[in-house]
């Protein structure tokens, strides 16, 4: 299990070094994913799938665009008080 119980109830991510370790592993896998692309045969349907790192760039850009659009366009339009319908 994830937790490490001690007297003061220190949990897994209460220790900064564990968080740091997780992030290091995470960033490393991001790099590895980009590298192994060059060693794999691509059976792409669309031409843009051949571009190196297409999926990585698309995933990143799509999510940033999604969050920015939701935050700066959708939220100002639709956000209301919690009791909007009750009043």
């Amino acid at each position: 299990m994830k937790e490490e119980r001690t007297e003061e109830k220190q949990y897994l991510f209460d220790k900064p070094e564990n968080v740091k370790r997780l992030f290091r592993f995470y960033y490393a896998s991001l790099v590895v994913l980009l590298i192994i692309e060059f060693f794999i045969h691509k059976h792409a349907t669309f031409p843009w799938e051949e571009w190196p790192g297409f999926y990585a760039v698309f995933g990143f850009v799509a999510c940033v665009a999604l969050v920015l659009a939701a935050k700066y366009i959708l939220r100002p339009l639709v956000k209301r008080e919690e009791n909007y319908y009750d009043s």
């Binding site: 999926y55 990585a56 995933g59 999510c63």
Partner: peptide, 14 residues
């Protein structure tokens, strides 16, 4: 690989 890249880099954005 394609799917993993897509997901990992989405999470990077997050």
């Amino acid at each position: 690989l394609a799917q993993t890249q897509l997901l990992f880099y989405s999470s990077l954005a997050f």
